[in-house]
């Protein structure tokens, strides 16, 4: 529809391989761009540094998630076995000295809670699920999950300009540079 208003998402440029993407990422980082990302079909090791990114904070989430699991299992076992319904079975008393027998379940719930924290922590950090995205409007972007290496610089970056950003991507060795627009 020609009447639809369009909003510029940003520039998308293709690079020929992982090494080219890595070198270009260093240039974009040094140009002071903040709202941008490198797209590749597989994780490229070392690209975090080339993009000036920090280490993921996910382990902290998982640490506290796991500790919650340990505490849950301990509370569950101790409350039900010692406080609410103490039962002497296998000649074992029901008191604080029985706690070693709860270790297997404390371990399992630690892992279970940590696993769920990994899943939901990851999804919140990478802001998924999000089924649509302006980049999907590009007709070359589908290659990012096949054999394409891309850099996208977003228009909301304060340093974005339709000419200078294009020149930056060209200077970094980008090909098929495309202005991606989303329907408003």
């Amino acid at each position: 529809m020609s009447t639809t208003r369009k909003r510029v998402y940003g520039y998308l440029a293709q690079f020929k391989n992982a090494s080219a993407l890595y070198k270009a990422a260093e240039k974009v980082r040094d140009a002071g761009i903040k709202k941008w990302d490198c797209y590749s079909p597989y994780p490229i090791h070392g690209l975090d540094g080339a993009m000036g990114m920090k280490r993921s904070i996910l382990p902290w989430f998982v640490f506290f998630g796991g500790m919650t699991g340990t505490a849950t299992a301990f509370t569950l076992a101790y409350t039900t076995q010692v406080v609410i319904y103490p039962t002497v079975v296998q000649g074992k008393p029901a008191n604080i000295f029985t706690v070693p027998a709860y270790f297997p379940i404390m371990f399992e719930l630690t892992v279970l809670f940590s696993g769920f924290t990994v899943l939901f922590g990851l999804l919140s950090l990478i802001k998924l699920p999000r089924l649509n995205h302006p980049l999907f409007a590009s007709n070359q972007f589908h290659r990012a999950t096949d054999d394409g290496f891309f850099i996208a610089i977003e228009a909301r970056d304060p340093n974005f300009s339709t000419t200078a950003t294009r020149e930056l991507l060209e200077a970094a060795g980008g090909a098929n540079i495309e202005l991606v627009e989303e329907e408003d």
């Binding site: 490198c38 696993g115 990994v118 990478i126 998924l128 995205h133």
Partner: peptide, 24 residues
């Protein structure tokens, strides 16, 4: 889930994978 393959996703994803491996 609308995966795009950006490094800002891969970075957390790799960490998640490592954590799951370490837990498993």
């Amino acid at each position: 889930l609308g995966w795009r393959g950006g490094n800002r996703q891969w970075s957390h994803y790799e960490m998640a994978y490592l954590l799951l491996a370490a837990l498993s």
